[in-house]
């Protein structure tokens, strides 16, 4: 971050909640979401996010039925 007082939107991922519907993948404007090869406790392959590409826009939060994504503001 170049300015100390500017806020940045940062995505927090809860892959343990993912049920693998994939609604988020075409919704992401930056194509930052893909499917993990790991299997979560619910028995699904959860999505994962490329944090370098993510802009924290919150589209995935909006479409996700299972509360996998949160966007938090950090300094």
């Amino acid at each position: 971050m170049s300015k100390k007082d500017s806020k940045k939107s940062v995505l927090t991922l809860h892959p343990e909640r993912c049920k693998g519907c994939r609604y988020c993948i075409p919704t992401c404007p930056k194509d930052a979401i893909s499917v993990s090869e790991k299997i979560n406790q619910k028995g699904y392959k959860p999505v994962m996010v490329d944090m370098e590409t993510c802009i924290g826009c919150g589209s995935c939060y909006t479409i996700c039925p299972d509360y996998v994504f949160e966007i938090k503001e950090v300094q």
């Binding site: 806020k7 909640r17 039925p65 509360y67 966007i71």
Partner: peptide
Amino acid sequence: MVERLIPTALVEDNK
């Protein structure tokens, strides 16, 4: 950009 936090009423994963 606004925060998008899980609202308080969602106390458990849905079924």
